[in-house]
Design a binder for these strands. Sequence first.
DNA 1: TGCAATATAGAATTTTGTTCCGTTATTCCG
DNA 2: CGGAATAACGGAACAAAATTCTATATTGCA
Lengths: 155, 155
Amino acid sequence: MEVRLDALDRKILSELQRDADQSLDEIARAVGSSKTPVWNRVRKMREAGVIRQTTALLDADALGLEACFFVLIRTSEHEEEWQRRFLEALNARPEVLEAHRLAGDIDYILKVLVPNARAYDRFYQALISEVRIHNVTALLSMEQIKSTTALPLEF
Amino acid sequence: MEVRLDALDRKILSELQRDADQSLDEIARAVGSSKTPVWNRVRKMREAGVIRQTTALLDADALGLEACFFVLIRTSEHEEEWQRRFLEALNARPEVLEAHRLAGDIDYILKVLVPNARAYDRFYQALISEVRIHNVTALLSMEQIKSTTALPLEF
DNA sequence: TGCAATATAGAATTTTGTTCCGTTATTCCG
DNA sequence: CGGAATAACGGAACAAAATTCTATATTGCA
């Protein structure tokens, strides 16, 4: 479905990114409109896929997930079959929050969230036993200094 | 505030991570409980900070944000004043979704989401003009092969 | 300017969130 | 092990919000 977002749509999205728990009345007030148009626009943006999901963001530390790694992967394998198995392995592992195929000499980057270094090692051992990987570098996060899921919106 | 999460709490969190738009009745049914205990537990987990926020996740492509970069930064500066200014610069820029201070020879990693390569270059030029940086490598994502905000929960 | 299409505000209805209460399960201590 | 105190539970009652509807206003275009 095709979408063209005007300033009001973007204001609504901005509010929903900030806090999706707000009532329609609150959002309407914040964006200078009223209930119905806000609701219609939200529904359309959901249908169009602009709004993909609404979700609760949890505190990693509170859940004992205190080790975050960025994993840089080089591989010599580039067949479709290998990639399919690699992707399957990543999707099967909830500790992999994000994975990208890259341009350049590093082939993939993963973001992995685990309780501690030992758990990361278990993940690493399991992964390389499932799919052939040429070279792996793990970057350990000491401190998350910025974290947002809010995409930048031009108004 | 202290928290100890039992299996029911974790099931609730799992549902909220999957879809925070569900009604309490739906969640209660899904986790095998009823409205009131679910509501009480959600409220407590919010107060305790286990649930940080509920938010709408948007589609980057639909918003014309088609270029995602991971930026690896080395710097020779490690004074507090430099770090304060660096952090301020990152927080002022909505295209920086995530930033981590790292262990090892790379000092920082950023995740930057912009419309295109030109926009990334503008970001890059602006950043290095504000804070002294020794060495920067940008990894360009060709394809996001996994993406979730759902933290792994043991049951 | 005038017509058609679309968006809007506000009221009516339905669904959901929130509180209350009597009961059941659990924990703690003798 | 038993019994009292505490906390969690399910269901009903109430309050608030989402969703639908309708009449009015606005916008785009000929």
